[in-house]
Write a protein that binds this DNA or RNA. Structure first.
Lengths: 332, 332
DNA sequence: ACGTGCTCTGCAAAGGATTGCAGAGTTTCA
DNA sequence: TGAAACTCTGCAATCCTTTGCAGAGCACGT
């Protein structure tokens, strides 16, 4: 039923080799013949069987993406970027969700290995040791994870933290809380690094947590932050920031008049909250595209001249209505 | 480098046929031999090459999913269901995002066709004619789209509407607005159907729109609804409902005291809004699983005894704090 | 007229797995 | 003991493409 290269060859009156070459090494077949072949193929609706091709070339034309949790609003946009860029580069993408589980993640990489040319790991949950172990199974590109010299696209989340702190300092805040996310998370470590690095002059930072990087984690953290007497809260991510705002509202603390709140990620909801959330935007979609670019260039390289294995992405503070000057301490 | 069936055969001292059968028709090879083969395979880390297998069996072991827009919070959860169930059934899944574009959607189906055993179309943007045309390209299962007798999993969104209306009626509302979504959307048509069907006794419904099924669409619609003098608003989806609540807050209309709001979808944000949104929950993840089940059973069927080609999924009203009794008209 | 050098096309093997068919070996029963 | 009936394993063809090698055809220079 499906039309094969043989059908095209027969119909066009040439050999299969010629048809194959018309597609893959066009300059090797005479113009006239090529046009005829391509026209026939088109007419018959022929589309090369990638599996058969892969069998001999060793390339599948597919790539894989693994995310820890699809329902985390952080990932769909990077996925979207991966998807779009992969399609442009004529790759198809396998998707898998490892459910925040490193063991499952490994299993998925291994299951994918034979069917893809490479895998993109978003915020991998594996330990460094585990990652080291599966290197070589297939080509890997990490997003937001830094280990040894593995290819990776990294968001400058520490720089984002700098922007957040500068913003709050400029508004006049002097005591700020950071609500920490999962200790094992690379992003969280980076944010803390940014925190320590940029919070020297005049700003006191108290670090709370770790909390679950979810809405509930934020509600939980809000009371603790309040007890610390800070005038501003920086949350590990937007989900937590939203939880903070919700809890503050319940307690009658007005945002931003009495408390400023900053999140990370700029998930779609951030702009819809009341008040709209000031947050550090992450360029997730661009990260997805960059990861594909990196992977593709890695695959097309023959020797060890892989070039630059790392892409950095700037973050950008989006100032909305959840941050303002702190309340006057004199109570005027 | 990768270990093939030949390697296992040589190492185990049997022919490739035996190795192959040890995996695919275990009962055909003697226990002792099979154990030995399997052990050898395990030891060598052999994993059958699915592409090669697919070449001869005609089955790829893959399936595809196409969604209109990954960043729409409705889809990640159905994707998650698809993913999980597919993995259980030992299928890998290709993902594609057609960017709300029917032409692109068709192209994606065709590109996938050769590499998958079937495709799941979530809320397809194609016209009926377009859908009819690609039937036969590969096996199809639709989610939330009903056309002719194509296999589909359909959410009983009309029933969800009934629950919403009953809920509002029971609270004492007498005049309610429905904010319509895209006219071409099957879900929107179903919701309107539910509306007309269940809104007879004692409830007056005014239908507004269509609006963009997004936050902004809701903000836009809020003022119009207010002008109609209704006491409750049912929005096409949660995104719109959130937009409505945001705009109402800006205008100083308190929810639910002065206006009740109901959404559809139960996106994660719904429960985090202030007030938490009453909404019709959709079982997206289960829909994803059901679609895979349907597709798999379709593929394993030989003749025309395909059985039931349709799965229905109940909806459930989640009552939260955005709905309450209407304000007393006498102003007491 | 013939050798030389091109350009273009075809033959056939290869890639990894499945499967119909046949053969080898074992058991059963007369 | 020998034929029949099984059970298990191996051979070889097949799926669809790609690609190294060789051959066909042609133009050109001598």
């Amino acid at each position: 039923m499906p039309v094969t290269i043989q059908d095209v060859a027969r119909e066009a009156g040439v050999s299969v080799s010629t048809v194959s070459r018309a597609f893959t090494v066009p300059e090797m077949v005479r113009d006239e013949t090529r046009h005829h072949v391509l026209a026939t193929a088109e007419r018959l609706g022929y589309r090369p069987n990638r599996a058969a091709r892969g069998l001999i070339t060793g390339k599948t034309g597919n790539l894989g993406v693994i995310v820890p949790d699809l329902s985390n609003p952080f990932f769909p946009n990077v996925l979207k970027g991966v998807q779009a860029r992969a399609r442009e580069a004529d790759y198809a993408v396998f998707l898998a969700d490892c459910d925040e589980n490193a063991t499952e993640e490994i299993a998925l990489v291994q299951a994918m290995a034979k069917q893809v040319d490479g895998v993109i790991l978003c915020s991998s949950r594996m330990s460094e040791a585990q990652l080291e172990r599966i290197v070589g199974t297939t080509s890997l590109v990490l997003i937001n994870r830094q280990v040894r010299n593995l290819p990776a696209v990294l968001m400058d989340t520490a720089g984002g933290m700098r922007q957040a702190i500068e913003h709050l300092a400029a508004l006049g805040h002097r005591k700020v809380a950071y609500l920490s996310g999962p200790r094992v998370s690379w992003s969280n470590r980076e944010r803390r690094r940014g925190l320590r690095r940029f919070a020297r002059q005049g700003i006191e930072v108290v670090e709370l947590g770790p909390f679950a990087p979810r809405f509930e984690g934020g509600s939980h953290a809000a009371d603790l932050a309040l007890a610390e007497g800070v005038t501003a809260i920086i949350a590990y991510n937007d989900l937590m920031a939203l939880g903070v705002m919700s809890r503050l509202a319940d307690r009658g603390v007005s945002v931003p008049a009495e408390m400023s709140v900053v999140g990370f990620d700029d998930i779609p909801m951030a702009g819809m909250a009341t008040p709209p959330l000031t947050t550090v935007s992450m360029q997730n979609e661009r990260a997805g595209r960059a990861a594909v670019d990196l992977l593709v260039s890695l695959l097309n390289v023959t020797g060890a001249d892989a070039g630059d294995l790392r892409r950095g992405l700037e973050c950008q503070l989006i100032v909305r209505a959840s941050t303002a000057v702190p309340p006057d301490p004199t109570g005027r």
